[in-house]
Nucleic acid binder design. Structure first.
Lengths: 397, 397
DNA sequence: TTTTATATCTTAAACGTTTGCGATATTATT
DNA sequence: AATAATATCGCAAACGTTTAAGATATAAAA
């Protein structure tokens, strides 16, 4: 056995072994009751982390010969710091290519400058536009955008919200999935006090700011337009009954009729699930009857496209035999023939507004009162509804 | 003057005033040379931060009666911790609704589990799909996705990269803007050793992994198909000459001709900037000549749509008078009449693959070797190119 | 000159985790 | 019974900033 000296008393004869810990022999001195090991391992973090190391405030401090706090203050022009020191610090910061560690900042300040966004599906053009609006607005104010998709699944949505909230975001912008009908998963997180803004498919049960499409007005404008074109029997391809947009757009539809003092028949409203087959079924049902619709108002552009394709398949002429209108102003509506009359909800602006509402809440803090903003869109009249004045050559090249 | 006692020696007569600092009177004791203030302000962080406070590892430690490090280890099943303690800690964690602070974790571990993504434009369906693929794949592995748009601007792209890199992301997935022709802004950041993966519009100068569309094969397949349909004079609506996709798709175009042993005329290649007017100009030029093209291969679906609309405007019949094909398989290609022959680049898979390449690099570390993956797409033949067998009723309903 | 102000820095704690290594009580070996 | 090994914990430093409050040198005032 090697002669081991006690680091305290220096004696050798009092030393005993004391087992292994993580593979290294330990000793202890009977007299001092002092435990110790011989091998001194390397430092806290040895090698692999070093190359990732960025210049820190401390590096600057050393370079300039001041303390770290002085550097911190100098960089943000704190009045306590002398102009000479400020200049030196800033100079060094540039020379050393200093970039503040936002993580450390966030940890300290308890804010991340990250906005979490949950949308059902990024590939949906509407949401893509909203997202674009969010990203632009956020970026302009130095905020970052973290995205999640629920894939129209309630379960995924709940999971997303859970993880997103654990990431110390400063705010959450959300559009619920079609499936979502209960909102406990959201209410649970609201206790943390993080600003939440709903858009499009909102939740009416929570005290959150909301950004809405002008569903009622939009639908009303479209239907009024159809009425003006002379259509009286206007059918509706609606979505699932529980959906917010379904309710609202139907409301606009009814409002238009009421406004025009025209009777409305429940028979003309078909609640579908937006699938091709459910839409075809609805159309088949209407066409089987004696009295057929003169126009079909589809609650979404996508279903309008499906409707038009099916009608064309049935050799019906649009708009001569039947008019069609959609809602959303997807790019496709411009492409299909005849071009689709629709309502542009100004999706980009929806995202923009949602982000701004979030900013308001951040700035005003407790003084902020939640509000609901409705984004005015615009009616886009194209050939698919121009029964009276249809002229194929109107189509733009 | 109030009688102030020295906190050290307790004397009163030795106390002198010593100015104000941040509004509070300071004193000092002549004897002790000790400076002090009377008012003791509140703690480090007083009120407003408290409500945002989450349960920490320290709270659990107190509740269970162990140290913070034991809690940390217990929660990740470290072998050093006894099973009884583990159970107690986990129980307390649940009861106190503990959520680890990912910021603190990231700061300590020097990894954020965040992937930064820079795309030219989220509203572009192709990028939306790629983004969707990235988000899905990242989420599945517990990574978060932070998005930026360059808006096809080199300047914005550079700024994005700069800020994104300061955010301690674990990796960067990027598709360059159309404008981008120099890559110094990227190379500068590469020194930090953060994995970068290029997709679609890649950078050939950097040692980064890349995910490519099968531009050459795709274009070749399309053109070969057109040749098979009997077209010989196949014109091309290309993009700007410096663009990677322009080069590659032209390469495929030429390859198809070479393969078929057919002479190719430079006259049939038009470099546009994808705008409506530049496309119209190109078409006008071709149609003015004696010998007109039998087919037009557009390098993107969007330009194909514009081409078709213009051709229809000119009363040319597609595909009888002239065939058209695109590239990209945008949704619109299914809607337009006749439906557009195109090439599906499998955008979602591009995003998925880029993310996986990033993961590979993270897992393998230094042992990882950069690679370039080409995603096989598929030719989508629709009516717009079926010169020989065109039957309008083929269109799907 | 003596006392008080001002200008400019520094110290140290705090944000919430992770982790190297030291410290004991307990159990197993001679 | 003495010594060695094992099983469990705790301490403290480190990640990079921010900031309340203390410490001086210098200038101003009395």
């Amino acid at each position: 056995m090697p002669r081991v000296k006690c680091p305290k008393c220096g004696k050798v004869e009092t030393i005993l072994k004391s087992g292994f810990v993580r593979g290294v022999q330990r000793y202890y001195c009977k007299e001092c009751i002092y435990h110790f090991t011989l091998i001194k391992k390397g430092r806290y973090r040895s090698s692999s982390f070093d190359n990732k190391r960025q210049t820190t405030i401390i590096d600057i401090a050393k370079a300039v010969g001041v303390s770290a706090s002085t550097v911190s203050r100098a960089l943000k022009n704190h009045e306590d710091i002398g102009s000479r020191t400020k200049a030196l610090v800033k100079q060094a910061a540039i020379e050393l290519d200093y970039q503040p560690n936002l993580l450390a900042q966030s940890l300290n300040r308890r804010e991340t400058h990250v906005i979490g966004v949950v949308v059902p599906d990024i590939e949906n053009p509407f949401f893509a536009s909203v997202l674009s609006g969010i990203q632009h607005t956020a970026s302009a104010s130095g905020y970052k955008v973290m995205i999640y998709q629920s894939n129209e699944s309630h379960k995924t949505e709940a999971a997303n919200i859970q993880t997103i909230m654990n990431n110390w975001i400063d705010g959450l912008l959300i559009c619920h999935s079609k499936e979502t009908q209960t909102f406990e998963h959201l209410k649970l997180q609201m206790k943390k006090g993080i600003p939440i803004v709903h858009f499009d498919r909102i939740c009416e049960e929570t005290a959150t700011s909301k950004v809405l499409l002008d569903n009622v007005t939009g639908a009303k404008q479209i239907v009024t337009h159809l009425l003006n074109e002379g259509c009286r029997r206007i059918a509706v391809i609606a979505g699932p009954k529980h959906l917010y947009i379904t309710k609202k757009r139907i409301e606009g539809y009814e409002s238009a009729f009421k406004n025009a003092n025209i009777e409305l028949n429940e028979r003309w409203i078909a609640y579908t699930d937006f699938t091709k087959s459910s839409i075809h079924d609805a159309i088949d049902n209407w066409l089987m009857e004696e009295i057929k619709p003169e126009a079909i108002f589809c609650i979404s552009d996508n279903s309008a496209i499906l409707t038009m394709m099916y009608l064309k398949h049935l050799k019906l002429k649009i708009p001569e035999d039947i008019c069609v209108a959609g809602f959303g102003n997807d790019y496709t509506g411009r492409i299909i023939e005849p071009a689709l009359t629709t309502y542009d909800p100004h999706a980009f602006k929806v995202g923009e507004t949602a982000t701004k509402l979030f900013f308001d809440q951040v700035i005003l803090g407790d003084k902020f009162e939640i509000k609901t903003v409705t984004i005015a869109g615009e009616l886009i009249v194209r050939s698919s509804s121009l029964k009276r004045s249809y002229n194929p050559s109107d189509e733009e090249a």
